[in-house]
Design a protein around this nucleic acid. Sequence first.
DNA 1: ATAAATGATACTATATTAGTATCATTTGTC
DNA 2: GACAAATGATACTAATATAGTATCATTTAT
Lengths: 134, 134
Amino acid sequence: MKLITRDTDYAVRALIFLAQEQKRIISTSELVSHLRIPRPFLRKILQRLNKEKLLKSYKGMGGGFRLTVYPHRIFLLDLIEIFQGPLRINECIFRKRVCPNIKTCKLKEKIDSIQRYVRSKLKDITLEMLLKRE
Amino acid sequence: MKLITRDTDYAVRALIFLAQEQKRIISTSELVSHLRIPRPFLRKILQRLNKEKLLKSYKGMGGGFRLTVYPHRIFLLDLIEIFQGPLRINECIFRKRVCPNIKTCKLKEKIDSIQRYVRSKLKDITLEMLLKRE
DNA sequence: ATAAATGATACTATATTAGTATCATTTGTC
DNA sequence: GACAAATGATACTAATATAGTATCATTTAT
């Protein structure tokens, strides 16, 4: 059971690199040569981050991507949800027959609370915390 | 992102039914007629629970399964791990290039703590809590 | 004009999850 | 002992999600 899939992982690495290069425009080629991520896959990821407005893209020669959001305002939770969809851990189990009174079920409360916790903790983790320092 | 997959879910439902029938021996057929789970899939699940010693099986005519563990000693976490493997959320992201000093990384600490929390909370949830009451 | 970049989008491959099928073995009942 | 009703073991298929590729159009600095 993975909480973080490959594309989220790659996205994080790419964002770290971009953050460390400040506002410089970095091309996919440059990223590929530094991080070891398959080029077309990385391209797809960067395009997505662009659509989500975390990056701004520049077309044409000398083009590439640039971070548009401060690293302390980029949250791991958001990246996870961009690439993996909404974080839900309380789906399946609560169906008709299992849980007699779904509204008041203690179990549902517990699971909901786990989910809230996980979400809030993942929200605490920012890109900034991942940057190399000293 | 699902925390609980179909087989875990089915296992829970089957266990609930078995727990409610006390120590009576219940066949797959009876379970199938009460829960709506595809028979061969359910059989696979019951066999697994048997191997894990949560159930005891009885072969031959009149045979079936019986719960061998008290519902308050069956934990959701264990069921999840039986069917889905170890619960790990801190795999992927911490590889060579991303995290400069993996030993001391604050982020790893955070994720580890999330994992500990999730595990301990899932460990708090017992089968007993899922049984119908009043 | 051209080369070097991204945009859009469709496709393929691999892994995981979900479910099926089959045959062997055990056991209660007549 | 024969038979039917059960599980044991195991291999197979189907569907879905994840991972990765390919292609062509468009933009833009030189």
